[in-house]
Nucleic acid binder design. Sequence first.
DNA 1: ATGAACCTTGGAGTATAGTCTAGTGTCAAG
DNA 2: CTTGACACTAGACTATACTCCAAGGTTCAT
Lengths: 137, 137
Amino acid sequence: MLKIGELAGQAKVSRDTLRFYEKHGLITPDHRSEAGYRLYSDSDIKRVGFILSAKEVGFTLSEIHQLLELEVTKDQKSCEDVKQFVDAKITVVNQRLAEISRIKKSLQTLSNACCGGDEPATHCTILEALGDQTSQD
Amino acid sequence: MLKIGELAGQAKVSRDTLRFYEKHGLITPDHRSEAGYRLYSDSDIKRVGFILSAKEVGFTLSEIHQLLELEVTKDQKSCEDVKQFVDAKITVVNQRLAEISRIKKSLQTLSNACCGGDEPATHCTILEALGDQTSQD
DNA sequence: ATGAACCTTGGAGTATAGTCTAGTGTCAAG
DNA sequence: CTTGACACTAGACTATACTCCAAGGTTCAT
């Protein structure tokens, strides 16, 4: 069982952020101590990690909330709903993957462009690099 | 030359957003008409597209501003600075790629988990799916 | 020559995601 | 038995990224 400061330390967020996430339903301590201190389980480190990863790749807290709420039950009905929701998210994740790859390529083109690189100094802005994505990977 | 509404329509943002981006140095119309109307060049569609892509994968407007400002000149000095900056961005982009791939896999695991899928119904939440990334791709 | 549909500016308002402060309580070490 | 590091709540404040509004000017088709 971890106190809020311990979880915060391990997950590299502030205590305030954890309380904020709790207020918004993203994470709830397993239970409270006599004194009312939040007590988290070890697996909550993973949960916070997921929240941070998902946030970093562009999901909002409310989307992350939905993802964390998902529970595929045996109930066929809810299962179909979950599948639809998840498949929609996979679609946006794929779009994001494509876009981030595109940006990565442009950055690499830009990085190779000058400074004694092999490229002629024509790709001199990110927009020019974006327009011309051929050989670099 | 495009008026603000035309650019907004093509780039699928609001006029207000374009004015907001201008205020923050992300995009400036080529020039103004006699009446003071903003007139954009065709290439500004691409510029707005870049802003939106970069935003979607988690860059802030101020980072995007920096990316757009980058100009690899022949000057060796500034060139090294640019390379450093760009290489740092490539590092974060790679991290983001890894994280988004991880999330994608979990979503796929989750999607396959039930509903007559081949997986047993053990992967029933995103966190369980995250923990167990083996065969799916 | 007038009305709709556009454009201008400045400034206020909103949503999201924290971050900080105040006032108070808890706990472990010296 | 007190001091320092931590915890609690409620609420105010901040940054980012828009979004809307008011009051007015422009363009153009009818």
